[in-house]
Amino acid sequence: MYHEWHGNTDPQAPTLVLSSGLGGSARFWGPQLPLLGERYRVLVYDHSGSGRSPATLAEGYSIATMAAELLALLDSLEVNRCHFIGHALGGLVGLELALQRPALLLSQVLVNAWSSPNPHSARCFAVRKHLLNDSGPAAYVQAQALFLYPADWIAANSAQLAEDDAHALAHFPTPANLLKRIAALQAFNVEAHLGQVHTPTLLIANRDDMLVPWQRSQHLAQALPNGRLCLLDYGGHASSVSDSATFNRVLLDYLAEHTG
């Protein structure tokens, strides 16, 4: 899979692995890379079948498969221990990593993630699938900001969003791949195994997230043996972009706590 190293080049520096959400693009983490790179070795990657990681995803593609693909990449790069940060679908990958290879993870930060389906998110993803199937990629991309960001942020950042939309459309995955990725996150359910995840875990959630109810992160914080919830008031589903200053402060504080 396509990947990039950023930040500290010292091989002894703590390693961070960042995994984005449904879009699967390393580009999502742009607001975090400059600050994280001051101290950490940071690995970002494009998920298989998206962006610069071309692949035809198989039937039955799952979050467990995504985690196995990432483990293969980390093995090839000789990453044996790391801190993991995952947004939405990327957070589900983090839970799978913690189940498949718990010794890998020193800590993890899961942003607006979940451990099982919920009716509200199912309705949102049904709408997104209808947009893709009935109206095409351009309509899907145009609607994406409505699910990710607060209304006032969208109104104030139209130029940036136009640039982001153009980039997303130019690098849009095949609809078949995207539908399989949506099916994978809709099928994800690790409720029965949460007690086995002993990795120190910060759950970051946003009260104004209109895609994933913040209570899904609250549930994870209560069910994970070493879970902790940080509930933010503003930022929507992607506060790492829409309120990056607040998000970055929370992230850096937690990482500092777990890296000495």
Rank of each mutant, 00 (worst) to 15 (best):
L194R: 10
A72D: 04
A68D: 08
A98S: 06
D165N: 09
M1T: 12
K129T: 15
Y40I: 11
L194Q: 01
G195V: 08
F28K: 03
P175V: 02
S62L: 07
T259P: 11
L104R: 03
T199K: 03
N248H: 07
D253E: 05
L97T: 01
G49V: 08
R123Q: 14
M1S: 12
V93M: 04
H193M: 14
N206I: 09
A205C: 13
L169R: 08
V93D: 06
Q218W: 02
Q108I: 01
N112T: 10
M66T: 01
N133K: 15
A256H: 04
E257L: 09
V93G: 01
T246A: 05
A170I: 00
E163L: 11
Y45N: 01
S244P: 05
P200V: 08
A238P: 05
S76D: 06
L70C: 01
T9M: 08
D75H: 13
L231C: 07
S239R: 06
S217H: 05
N189P: 12
I204D: 01
Q32R: 04
F188D: 02
T15D: 00
I204W: 06
A58I: 13
E191Y: 00
R228Y: 05
L57E: 14
L97H: 02
V109N: 01
W214L: 03
E38G: 15
S50N: 08
L229N: 00
P150C: 00
V250Y: 01
R81T: 11
S20R: 03
L106P: 00
Q196V: 00
G227W: 00
E4R: 12
W214I: 12
G260H: 09
T246I: 08
E78H: 15
P54S: 13
L232K: 12
T65E: 07
L36V: 09
V17Q: 01
P173H: 06
N118F: 08
E69T: 11
L99H: 09
A145Q: 14
V109Q: 10
E69F: 05
V42A: 08
A256V: 06
V212W: 06
V250Q: 07
F172C: 05
L203V: 10
I182G: 13
P150Y: 09
F247I: 05
K129R: 15
H130C: 09
A122Y: 02
F188A: 06
A151Q: 13
V190D: 02
A156G: 12
T199P: 00
P150W: 13
D165Q: 15
L43G: 01
N206H: 05
R123F: 15
D75L: 11
N118M: 11
Q108V: 10
A122G: 07
Q215W: 08
I154C: 07
G236A: 05
H130Y: 14
Y149A: 12
Q222K: 02
G49A: 11
I85K: 12
A103P: 06
S50F: 03
L255P: 00
P173I: 01
G260Y: 00
L178I: 07
S19T: 05
A183G: 05
L211I: 14
N80D: 15
